[in-house]
Design a protein around this nucleic acid. Sequence first.
DNA 1: CAGTATCCCAAGCGATACTG
DNA 2: CAGTATCGCTTGGGATACTG
Lengths: 170, 170
Amino acid sequence: MALGIGYEAQGCYLARALEVVGERWTLLILRDFFFGVRHFSDLLAHLDVSRAVLTDRLETLVDAGVVVRRKEGRTVEYELTAAGEDLWPTVYSLIRWAERHLEADFPGRVFAHATCGTDIEESGLCPRCGVVPTVRDLDARPRPGINPRRRDDPVAIALRERHRMLSPLP
Amino acid sequence: MALGIGYEAQGCYLARALEVVGERWTLLILRDFFFGVRHFSDLLAHLDVSRAVLTDRLETLVDAGVVVRRKEGRTVEYELTAAGEDLWPTVYSLIRWAERHLEADFPGRVFAHATCGTDIEESGLCPRCGVVPTVRDLDARPRPGINPRRRDDPVAIALRERHRMLSPLP
DNA sequence: CAGTATCCCAAGCGATACTG
DNA sequence: CAGTATCGCTTGGGATACTG
């Protein structure tokens, strides 16, 4: 596919970016990748998207070089490329924007610099280390409060897995 | 409208943000607002979007508090709210992502800190002043090279207008 | 100028069943 | 598990004409 969604003649790189990530579900798929999800079936279960649409979006992302598709034994794993990880500032900025400006009806998440355990600032900066960690060095944990997501959904599981791998040893 | 586009149960603020800005055309409309466009007719001419869709998207943005609609004499002006200006990091990150990772087939733009004239870095930082300017303090100018846009399109005109207002006196 | 109102087609999408 | 294949509906949205 990757036929684009009709912004061809806009003369602006924003339109080009939206050809890749501007379709419905795409940024939510990427969010799940950032949080450690790798399997088709987990995306399917977590996002409540139809198989055909998920297949189509993954194909667009693979064609654009945002994720790679790899056969891992008898299963298939998707993984973000460097270009894919570079989309984190976009996803992060949208999450923070919604937390600041939309009605807060659930707790959301806190992002911490995994190597030192310090929560990052709005800008993405780690105040302790003075760097802006990439998404690989971030640990996302839910804020305290009522959490509407089930503890055994694919993202919750992936985040706990990440947490174990990223957290500094006590 | 503002009925959302069906991400209701995602339990993530990203989904909430996408209910506001995730529909087709919306981020391109916002880009034009950032660049100084204010009129329905200019958006219509520049974006090549249908009247009905433009009306719908503007309504969603007004309902979400991203832009305000104001009667200015016998015409109507749209203006970004503070919440709207807070979407600049999202738009900027997408533009930079496309410039870095997609095929470069036209020159794109450079963003400069208007108060000092210095080009900002990828991160958004002004290296001379050590601050991250808001979009109000940025001046966008096209890179040298073939520019496929016409000099009299609404965005080109709006940008020249902005440039006159923002540029430091020589 | 800034929209409404209609019309109508095409694309998008969810549901379900099937496959290697 | 990771998709195809098919179906049928609903929505999106372009074109055009009209309005205060």
